[in-house]
């Protein structure tokens, strides 16, 4: 039951953010699917004790690869699918804790939270980077042969 709620929520959240940044109507549905895929990947790896960083990186990688696929299929720019799907991965909780601890004057805890935020952001960027690399190598190989 919980997993159904998670899937539904991630679909709706991705769709909602897609509407906020005004992506074309035609892309909304596939965008939601990419978002669900990313979030499920994140949950699975986190559930299997993979750690937050690995979960974020692999989820970003999945989002990158599937948005390349969607971009090819619908002939639309890749960022249309990337941006809304990445939103659930944003380290909102840690950033919130960091801000609260800074405001309260608990600097040490705040810095540890901040380091977490930066590391998660780095992990997401890493996953993204790998997906871009894979895409570029793949296209280079397919174009040559």
């Amino acid at each position: 039951m919980a997993i159904v709620i998670q899937i539904l929520c991630s679909y709706l959240a991705t769709l909602g953010f897609g509407i906020i940044v005004n992506i074309p109507h035609r892309a909304l549905n596939s965008c939601g699917l990419v978002g669900v895929l990313g979030w499920i990947t994140y949950l699975l790896i986190k559930g299997a004790n993979g750690g937050t960083m690995l979960a974020n990186a692999v989820a970003a990688l999945m989002i990158g690869l599937s948005s390349i696929f969607m971009a090819r299929r619908l002939k639309m720019p890749m960022i249309l699918f990337n941006i809304p799907s990445l939103v659930p991965l944003v380290p909102g909780g840690q950033a919130y804790k960091a801000v609260r601890n800074f405001a309260v004057g608990n600097d040490l805890a705040a810095i540890s939270d901040l380091v977490q935020v930066v590391m998660i952001a780095g992990a997401i960027a890493m996953g993204f980077f790998i997906s871009e690399l894979v895409a570029r190598t793949y296209f280079r190989i397919t174009i040559r042969h």
């Binding site: 539904l8 991630s10 959240a13 909602g16 509407i19 906020i20 005004n22 939103v87 909102g92």
Partner: peptide
């Protein structure tokens, strides 16, 4: 065409609530 303000507002509400539950 830009999505109307009300649709964006609903989208914002949906994003907030669903992400709150996901977290």
């Amino acid at each position: 065409p830009f999505f109307s303000f009300w649709l964006q507002l609903i989208a914002a509400v949906v994003v907030s609530v669903t992400l709150m539950i996901m977290y």
